[in-house]
């Protein structure tokens, strides 16, 4: 206790530990040059368009279709990731079986595998002659160059987020209340729905939001598999790039600002949720 008090006091008198000046210089330099100035320039450039021009650029039918594809596929992918993620996290935490550690390591593959590789492989897997496509295409399931393909790669890139947020919360879950519920006659389903799920729900929701944020911005893998057909399988980041390649900077900027606004609002939601998870853990 006493050390804690001296510690806080020492940190307030910030002259005690060295390096404040140089650290703040490095941090502000990198932060300003890489994050603050670029994002401000983007916002200013969009603001300089004026409201009517901005709307004309950001709200064209093609752009609206791209937002819809982006949002729709990302929400579906994040939901699939959350459900699958909860299940995988549950198995990793609650059940001991040979190969558990291997499964645990494999979950991180999407974090380390370049998204371009993922996109390339998924598109070759689900075409008619691919490993999986040869079974699925005859059934009428088109996994490549389709909306489903977008969802598939987005699930791939967002799955680790959904798992890794839920896993520690499941680990720290107090087993006593579960045991009490079972002793008092609740069946497994009741115990899960009324005791476990409320406790892990904020974590599941955080995982969903993180997966959604990741999916909304994803470009590398989608560009390979979606076919990028305007109005059908064109996501917002792909539209930004194609506008940029036509040197339509104003339009690209306007669409980027809409996408940025979505991401930043998600970041705010994630931060609020994470604070709630931290409070629940205490």
């Amino acid at each position: 206790m006493s050390t804690e008090i001296t510690t806080t006091r020492a940190m307030r008198r910030r002259s005690v530990l060295p390096g404040f000046g140089i650290s703040i210089a490095i941090t502000s330099l990198v932060m300003t040059a890489l994050v603050i100035i670029p994002l401000s320039v983007l916002a200013l450039r969009a603001a300089s368009l004026g409201p009517t021009e901005f709307l004309a650029a950001a709200w064209t039918p093609r752009a609206r279709a791209a937002y819809a594809v982006s949002l729709g596929a990302s929400v579906v992918a994040a939901a699939v990731s959350s459900v699958c993620g909860l299940l995988v996290a549950w198995v990793l935490v609650r059940i001991d079986f040979p190969g558990r550690r291997l499964l645990d390591s494999l979950v991180d593959v999407p974090l380390a595998l370049p998204t371009a590789v993922a996109g390339l492989v998924y598109s070759t897997l689900y075409v008619e002659r691919g490993w999986l496509g040869r079974f699925l295409v005859p059934l009428g399931i088109q996994g490549a160059y389709s909306w489903l393909g977008i969802v598939l790669v987005l699930v791939f890139v967002s799955l680790p987020f959904a798992i890794r947020v839920v896993q520690p919360v499941l680990e720290s879950l107090d087993r006593d209340s579960e045991e009490a519920a079972r002793m008092l006659g609740a069946n497994r389903a009741q115990t899960f729905l009324k005791v476990i799920f409320p406790a892990i729900f904020p974590a599941v929701l955080t995982g969903f939001a993180l997966a959604l944020a990741r999916a909304l911005g994803e470009y590398g893998s989608v560009v390979f598999i979606s076919g990028n057909m305007p109005f059908k399988t064109e996501i917002a980041p792909v539209l930004i790039v194609s506008r940029l390649e036509e040197f339509a900077y104003a339009e690209a900027t306007a669409i980027a600002v809409v996408l940025l606004a979505m991401s930043i609002s998600l970041l705010v939601v994630v931060n609020a949720l994470q604070q709630r998870v931290a409070r629940n853990a205490q």
């Binding site: 670029p38 983007l42 909304l216 911005g217 980041p237 930004i240 991401s263 931060n271």
Partner: peptide, 24 residues
């Protein structure tokens, strides 16, 4: 604010980040 700013690049689409650099 600094802690939040550190997370911003995670939630910004890489394409948007690239565009911002092109604009500068």
């Amino acid at each position: 604010l600094l802690i939040t700013l550190c997370d911003v690049p995670f939630s910004v689409s890489p394409v948007v980040a690239g565009l911002a650099l092109v604009l500068i």
